[in-house]
C-alpha cells in the first residue's frame, strides 16, 4: 500500500533530517497522508453534509416537521415528500433533516466540554504531581466508577423535567465523559515533564505556565486531538441511545433516536422506510466519524500501526 510507505516516512522523518526548506510539522505531514485516502474524503464529505444539515435544516427541506396532518398518516413517498409521512402525518424527510441537529450539537458541544475540562484537569494533575495529582486522580476514579451510559441514564431520568433543550444530555454525557481525556493528558504530561527539552527550557528560566502551554501542551495535544473525531462519533451514538430510551429532548422536538424508537414496529407493519431512514442517517454519521477518526489517529500516531 502506498499510504503505508507514506506513514513509514512520516514516522521516520524526524530522525533523517529533511532538506531545510521543506520541513513539515506532524500535522501537515498527517494532512498530506490523509487527503489522498478515499475513505477520508468520503467520510469528510458525509460529516460536512451532516453538519450543514444540522446547522441549516431549512435549506434542505421546505416542509415544517411539526406540520402534522392526520389525514396523511403513513403516506407513501412522493416527489415533494421523499420519505413519505409517519403515523401522525408529519413529513418524514423534513423530520430526518431537523433530527440531525440534536445529535450533531450534542456530539460537538460535549466534545468541547470534555476536552477543555478533562484537558485542564489532566494537565494540572500531570504537571504539578503530588497532592494535585492525588486529588484529581481520586476524582477521576470516582467518576469512572459509574459506567458512562448508566450514569447518563440516571442523570436524565432524575432530571426529566429539566425542559426541552439538549443541555441536560450534554451535561450528563460530559460529567461521565471527561475522566478518559483527563487520564490521557495526565499520562502525557507526566511523560513529558521528565524529558530533556522540558528540563532545558526550565533551566533557561521558563515559567510553569510557559512550560505547560508552549512546551508540553503542543506535544501532549496530538494524542488527545487524534481521539476527538472518535469521541464525537461515540457521543452521537450515546445521544441516539439516550433519545431512543426517551431521555433527553421531548416531543415535538425530533431526534434520530426518538424517530427510530417511535417506528420500531414499522419494519414488519409495512413502512420500513420510517425505521430505515433515520437509522441510515445516524449510521452514516457515526461510521463516518469513526472512519475519519481512525485514519487521523493512525496518521498522527504511526506507532499504533
Amino acid at each position: 500500500m502506498s499510504d503505508t510507505t507514506e506513514l513509514i516516512r512520516a514516522a521516520t522523518a524526524p530522525s533523517s533530517p529533511p532538506p531545510p526548506d521543506k520541513v513539515r510539522s506532524l500535522w501537515s505531514d498527517a494532512f498530506h497522508v490523509l487527503r489522498k485516502r478515499p475513505v477520508v474524503i468520503a467520510s469528510t464529505v458525509i460529516i460536512v453534509a451532516m453538519i450543514a444539515i444540522a446547522a441549516f435544516p431549512g435549506l434542505f427541506t421546505s416542509e415544517d416537521p411539526e406540520d402534522c396532518r392526520l389525514e396523511r398518516f403513513f403516506g407513501s413517498p412522493s416527489a415533494g415528500h421523499w420519505f413519505g409521512f409517519d403515523q401522525f402525518g408529519c413529513d418524514y424527510w423534513s423530520m430526518t433533516m431537523y433530527g440531525a441537529r440534536p445529535s450533531i450539537v450534542v456530539g460537538l458541544v460535549t466534545t468541547v466540554l470534555i476536552v477543555v475540562v478533562g484537558g485542564v484537569l489532566g494537565a494540572i494533575a500531570g504537571y504539578y504531581g503530588g497532592i494535585w495529582d492525588t486529588l484529581v486522580s481520586r476524582v477521576i476514579d470516582v467518576f469512572n466508577a459509574i459506567p458512562f451510559v448508566l450514569g447518563a441514564i440516571l442523570i436524565l431520568a432524575i432530571w426529566r423535567s429539566a425542559g426541552d433543550t439538549v443541555w441536560p444530555t450534554i451535561l450528563a454525557l460530559a460529567v461521565f465523559g471527561w475522566p478518559v481525556t483527563a487520564r490521557m493528558l495526565r499520562a502525557s504530561f507526566i511523560e513529558a515533564r521528565g524529558l530533556d527539552y522540558v528540563h532545558a527550557a526550565r533551566s533557561l528560566g521558563a515559567s510553569d505556565r510557559r512550560l505547560m502551554f508552549r512546551h508540553i501542551f503542543p506535544n501532549a495535544m496530538a494524542p488527545m486531538m487524534s481521539g476527538v473525531p472518535l469521541m464525537i462519533g461515540g457521543l452521537i451514538e450515546a445521544e441516539a441511545t439516550l433519545s431512543f430510551l426517551g431521555l433527553g429532548l421531548k416531543p415535538p422536538a425530533v431526534t434520530w433516536g426518538s424517530m427510530i424508537s417511535n417506528n420500531v414496529a414499522t419494519l414488519i407493519s409495512g413502512h420500513p422506510l420510517l425505521l430505515i431512514a433515520p437509522a441510515t442517517f445516524l449510521l452514516a454519521t457515526t461510521i463516518s466519524f469513526a472512519l475519519l477518526g481512525d485514519a487521523i489517529r493512525d496518521a498522527l500516531d504511526p506507532k499504533l500501526r
Binding site: G233, V264, A290, L291
Partner: peptide, 14 residues
Amino acid sequence: TIVFGAVPIFLVVL
C-alpha cells in the same frame, strides 16, 4: 471493528 464499533447497540439489537 471500526464500523461495528460505530453502530449504536440499539440498532444492532433491532
